[in-house]
Nucleic acid binder design. Structure first.
Lengths: 121, 121
DNA sequence: AGGGATGAATTACACATGTAATCGACAGGG
DNA sequence: CCCTGTCGATTACATGTGTAATTCATCCCT
């Protein structure tokens, strides 16, 4: 699966949330703080099409875009990449790191423990 | 903290593992499969210096390079970035994802549970 | 002392990415 | 039927990145 750049990812998020959409619709839904023009969004859409992670169907003179890959799949791949690179593929090392940095609230801990307990059953 | 590119990260890894080192030493320790020439490694070193994530001291005609940032800090930042982007900042969502993908071995689960238990005490 | 080896610095070049502007086609309103 | 707005496609351009080669100074060996 092709790599998706940071900015492009914002576009994917929009389409994972709702699809199909026209270019204009996507632009309208991209987070404000990006400050992107419609032209920029269109560039992103073309590049994502070229990467094969979006598909489009014609709707008259416009395109309707929709994701061609599943969010879960992409997220899984990226997470795996990070865990491999930074933690030698060891998930516990990641968790230990988060713990050491106080990234885990008591609620997080409880939730994760629950998850793991269910996994074992 | 400046972003470190994927290739550059490989150089940082070498220096986090052992420092200070000369450019030639770094090149010798970079993973084989990168297939980098000495010149490439030197480019990386210059860029990392420019980014302020390495420092160097002169040793006669050569430089000795050493990390200027701590590995844990960088790793923490990158992990946080990914968790924010892909899991809305929710660590349990990441763990759930890993679980759903069978990325957690029974040993991993046990280890994480142990970690969390200690956290609570 | 001269010549090759070696160091860092400078330059090179293609592809990716962020961020558009412009172009040519065409649809719809007056 | 013509004008204007809108569409995707093409082009633009700066910066980052991968991957070096080249240059210029200097050290060491013979």
């Amino acid at each position: 699966m092709e790599r998706i750049a940071e900015g492009e990812y914002a576009v994917m998020e929009v389409l994972w949330d709702e699809a199909p959409l026209t270019a204009a619709d996507v632009a309208a839904r991209v987070p404000e703080d990006r400050g992107w023009s419609l032209a920029t969004v269109k560039t992103m859409l073309s590049r994502l099409l070229a990467k094969g992670v979006l598909s489009h169907e014609e709707d008259g003179r416009r395109y309707l875009y929709r994701p061609a890959i599943r969010r879960e799949d992409y997220v899984a791949e990226e997470s795996g990449r990070l865990i491999d690179r930074m933690f030698g593929g060891r998930v516990p090392a990641l968790v230990a790191q988060l713990a050491a940095r106080d990234k885990l609230t008591p609620a997080d801990i409880a939730e994760i423990e629950k998850l793991l307990k269910e996994l074992k059953s």
